[in-house]
Design a protein around this nucleic acid. Structure first.
Lengths: 198, 198
DNA sequence: CGTCACATTGAACCTCTTCAAGCGCCGTGG
DNA sequence: CCACGGCGCTTGAAGAGGTTCAATGTGACG
């Protein structure tokens, strides 16, 4: 698969502070974005104030690949982040073929998230941790830049359930919480097992 | 949006009987498919025998738009169906632009399904019925060609909960079950309301 | 008329949510 | 420098919603 190498140097990265909005739901989707450093989340706010997080993105990953002319969700920096912004207009450095590849990858990601939402709370949390471990540099240590509220809204659980589940996993010696935002996985090989669970 | 009109006549439809497999998970994704008549479901079988239905497709809709070189799920005819099969190879009648449009639409559909999975049982069932009503010819009468087991595996509920929820909706005069596979919606305008619930 | 597959209904159980309180960290101000 | 207050995480107890197990109902087909 293309890693976007052919067009990722097309502009200087823009800096965003913690909780800065990168684009807003409903606005025209003119650009695609690539994370250089930091972490971004995309979310919709349903009427009722309830918030739904669609995805977290980490360095090297692309986001903003909405289906239609307008963004279906808002993007916000979870921590200070550097992001490359590229026009998705036809005829630009971003080709239709690129877009198709990236969009197909995004679809894959959503399907995976979909499967996660069908599992029980503990499996969701474990799946989330293993996913982050796999995407991070260190397979056995995971950094959680986002708050419990964000994790809960991503996994469709309450913050209490997320917290309780992490505590239970720690008591069971499956993980270790160095700090609430730094998790050590006791069995990194669990990643392979989990990924085989289609 | 393109309705695919430029290439939907490129071959004669193939007929599939009830429960016939159209393609299988893991096989190369060489074609895309358009339903002329009938109904198709796509599903994965997780190890553990548990089945997960990703989508139902109806006349006029496309399926088989998997992200990668191989299908991520199997496709099966729910009832006797006529399906047009087209090669997705580059240089064929199906252009990259077509594929991007169709894939983006598929992504939209998955996101919608995703939101459905975050709701409570009753909302999932109602959302499912309204979705089918909207896609069908008659806004106030829905035909359910699939079994309760299929609906349950699509909504991530048990067949008991689906059945109980439908019964409760009928007692509440929200719907009417002419037969277990024919639902009359008492308030079709609910579709607009439900779609506004992001 | 009997059988089979599917749908419906009931009751006990379990998981997650809800409501409520406690804890720890950090920045601010006296 | 330390007390205070706010914010986010954790923990506990009660309650609601769905699942599980089990039985009953119903229509199609031989």
């Amino acid at each position: 698969m293309s890693n976007g190498g052919s067009f990722d140097q097309s502009c200087a990265p823009t800096l965003f502070a913690r909780h800065d909005e990168i684009y807003r739901e409903g606005k025209p989707a003119e650009f695609i974005y690539k994370i250089e450093s930091g972490c971004v989340r995309t979310h919709n706010t349903l009427n009722g104030g309830r918030r739904q997080i669609d995805a977290f993105y980490f360095p090297g990953e692309f986001f903003g690949l909405d289906a239609h002319a307008v963004h279906g969700s808002s993007a916000v920096a979870v921590i200070p982040s550097a992001i490359r912004i590229m026009s998705r207009a036809a005829g630009d450095v971003v080709t239709t073929q690129h877009l198709l590849t990236l969009t197909a990858g995004e679809m894959q990601r959503i399907k995976k998230h979909n499967q996660l939402l069908r599992k029980r709370a503990e499996e969701r949390v474990v799946g989330f941790l293993l996913d982050l471990a796999q995407r991070g540099r260190n397979q056995s240590e995971v950094d959680l830049p986002m708050a419990r509220r964000d994790i809960a809204d991503y996994l469709d659980l309450t913050i209490e359930t997320v917290s309780r589940t992490l505590s239970r996993l720690e008591r069971a010696s499956a993980i270790s919480l160095a700090t609430p935002w730094r998790v050590i996985l006791r069995d990194p090989s669990a990643i392979d097992w989990f990924n085989s669970q289609t």
